[in-house]
Amino acid sequence: MEVIAVAGIVYGTYVAYNSYKEKEAKKNDPGLIFHANDQNGDARERKIKKRAILARLVYGMYDRFRRKPEIEYKEWWTKVHYHLVPLESVLTEDELKLFAKELEDERQHQYFGVFRRNKDSPLDEAPEWVVAIRGTEPSALADLHNDAKIVLEKLNSSTLIPLLYYVVWRLGAQHGYCNVNVTGHSLGAAAGLMVCRRLALEGGAVEGHFFNPPFATLESLARSCAHVVKRVFIEAMPAEGEKLYDAAKRAGSKFFHAVADTDNTERRSKALAEFKTLAEANWSPYLYLNKHDFICREFLKHFRKATSDQDRKKWYSSVTEFSKLVLGDTETFHLFPSAHLVTIETYPIRPISAHMLWNWIDPHLSYKFNHTKLSL
């Protein structure tokens, strides 16, 4: 009982702290991030100025899902001169019937919204159209289910993906892909990356800004757990711990490689071809990463070194073979050849806070910017 009580106090403290930080984030004036006479710096880096606006749109989706009063959640986007466009006005009558099941699920879970910039907006660098996608709400079982799909690379089976893809495609086809931005946080970042990756492969690249996108496959989680297990083994058994750890690692690696090597020549060829197509399309999403966020920081390691045809981990995921064998069709969203990395550092003793969206709201945020490519 004492353990449960302590856990309850910790969770309550976390919820209160996060709520306080969200309220403080809402008070920030996003207009401060724009300067009319700013002609200096790399054009790609100047696009980061949109960060505070895009984060506010995503927060609007969070508060809408939380059933907060309309006058409260609307402030997230009205103060940055956007209005929410009903999906019914984006899709045709036939498309509404075609996606009836997905629309029903979307009305229940309210994952994303379509926003259009107001004509009187003074923010010239703001995109005309934005699709903003919220992340995980721990109280929503459907969200936790989708999080599990991310780990297994099965997010493509979520009802969120086909509707989201079609909406973004429809906006791009009607208004020009260059006038559409997609943004999301956490689960929403994963969904946005998957959809934008598909569109880029089809020749319809849209600009994407993704906050704390998860890099949490079975393989990456296994590596993280392995480091913890190694420390436990060595501390518990200084003499034999490392040998036992190495033996277990070899056995696990042998098992996954055996699964991954089962008739996957065609899948590897397809994955490499997609990687090269994305490189030719010059699709390069903006990834907003916190170095102390264990959910997204693997992206920093992933883009640290260039790749080659033999370095499969950069363009091919063996986890897809394991998941396909057990669960069916899979799709990777986290493997692409180029990205704009926007990184910050918060306190390492607050790993949960490091994942929160409010870290990105401050217009005067100090960050590092790097455009990185994994050339073949």
Rank of each mutant, 00 (worst) to 15 (best):
V195E: 00
G184W: 00
A55Q: 02
P285W: 02
K368Q: 15
N212Y: 03
Y367V: 03
Y165I: 03
L341K: 08
I4G: 04
P351C: 12
S375D: 14
S284Y: 01
P363N: 13
H302I: 06
N18M: 10
T265V: 12
R312K: 14
L87M: 11
T330C: 10
V232K: 13
P127A: 09
S317C: 07
L187N: 00
G41F: 04
R116T: 04
Y245D: 03
A52P: 01
L123W: 13
E274S: 11
K119F: 07
D362P: 07
L221D: 03
S19R: 15
D38K: 08
A271H: 04
A273Y: 08
L91F: 08
L187R: 00
V90W: 05
I33W: 04
A148S: 14
G188K: 00
V182Q: 00
L278Y: 06
I133R: 01
G176R: 09
A200M: 05
N212M: 09
K49Q: 15
L155V: 05
I234A: 06
L374N: 07
F299M: 03
K368D: 15
L123F: 14
H145S: 14
S253P: 00
A142Q: 12
A191V: 01
K314M: 07
P138G: 04
H83A: 03
R44A: 11
D38W: 06
L218C: 08
N181D: 13
M61Q: 12
G252R: 08
T330A: 08
A173P: 05
E72R: 10
